[in-house]
């Protein structure tokens, strides 16, 4: 109870203090001559926001870059040692490879499944469309930890002879096979794929909602024109609908790509990167939190940033183009 009151106090205090700050600064600026008032006022309005971004994102990002050239406790410079150690270790190369697998599989499958559901559900009556979409969208609201709990229960393995309480092993043993500890099977990265299924399960709803809106936005005349010209359903889909929703496809793809690159909670809870399922964000967390190695953790983040850079450039370009079209 006291904690809740404290939380409310934090809100009231935080909002109140911020309001007071804006009000005082505003009054202060109003005492300046009109010309200066006009010049200074925008900075009063954006000041706190810029301060928050600077303090919590920009400054730490620069510092992370610097720390990646220092040792574990940030007491001495080590040059590129963190990078060469990481890239030289077989374990980290496997981590990178796993992350690449995630990147190669999850965004594409999520977009394809989402588009499939969007197009299929579009043909249902309004009630069943709503219902089926809600069911597929719901995992989106569940935390990564919750998602992992749910799927842990699917992949759970019990020794032979005991009743299986995990769904996958129940089906598997019913087919006459011996139970398998699925999450420990790393042949061909099988367990990594099992983890990917969780993220796909969680993200298809998002992909479906965006793509569904885009599909519904395709002008009917273009579809009718194609039909009159004798196009079949498949041709209409690939030649008329897909080109018109391509921008949304890219948006969804990039969004899922970003969440895949920094996938943490699902892997952390399911395997903590063991059994050769490690990915870059889990590796980062363990270097920072368990090993207390600031240098290596920073170097991992810098590599992640380099990987994200093309997406950032795309994002900025896309924004500029949108602004120009406004």
């Amino acid at each position: 109870m006291i904690r809740l009151i404290n939380a409310l106090l934090a809100i009231v205090g935080g909002v109140g203090a911020a309001l007071l700050l804006y009000w005082v600064l505003n009054k202060l600026v109003e005492t300046f001559p009109a010309k200066w008032e006009e010049r200074l006022k925008p900075w009063v309005f954006i000041g706190p926001a810029v301060a928050a971004i600077g303090l919590f994102l920009v400054y730490p990002a620069i510092r992370t870059f610097i720390l990646s050239f220092a040792n574990a406790r940030s007491t001495a410079w080590v040059g590129f040692e963190n990078y060469s150690d990481l890239l030289g270790s077989e374990a980290f190369r496997q981590t990178l490879y796993n992350t690449l697998l995630w990147i190669a599989v999850v965004p594409a499958v999520t977009v394809a499944l989402g588009l499939g559901v969007a197009v299929l559900a579009d043909r249902l009556g309004p009630q069943s469309e709503k219902l089926s979409k809600s069911i597929i969208f719901l995992p989106m609201a569940i935390s990564g930890v919750g998602q992992a709990t749910i799927w842990r229960f699917i992949y759970e393995a019990r020794p032979e002879g005991e009743p299986q309480i995990g769904l996958q092993n129940a089906v598997w043993t019913a087919l006459g096979f011996d139970p398998v500890a699925w999450l420990q099977v790393d042949t061909l990265h099988f367990n990594s794929f099992l983890l990917m299924i969780i993220l796909i399960w969680a993200q298809v709803g998002f992909s479906m909602v965006l793509l569904s809106a885009a599909v519904k936005g395709v002008p009917v005349d273009t579809l009718e024109a194609a039909r009159i010209d004798g196009a079949n359903e498949r041709q209409i889909f690939f030649r008329v609908i897909v080109p018109q929703i391509w921008a949304t496809v890219i948006t969804v793809f990039i969004t899922v790509l970003i969440s895949v690159m920094k996938i943490f909670d699902v892997v952390y809870v399911m395997t903590n990167g063991n059994f050769n399922t490690d990915v870059i964000a889990v590796n980062f967390f363990n270097e920072l939190f368990r090993n207390g190695n600031n240098g290596r953790a920073s170097a991992i983040v810098v590599m992640l940033m380099i990987a994200v850079l093309p997406v950032i450039i795309y994002q900025v370009r896309h924004f500029r183009a949108e602004e120009a079209a406004r």
């Binding site: 971004i53 730490p60 690159m261 950032i312």
Partner: peptide, 13 residues
Amino acid sequence: ALLVVPNQVALVP
């Protein structure tokens, strides 16, 4: 640009 930047970038400092 910062919209896309992973939060991990700020955590060590």
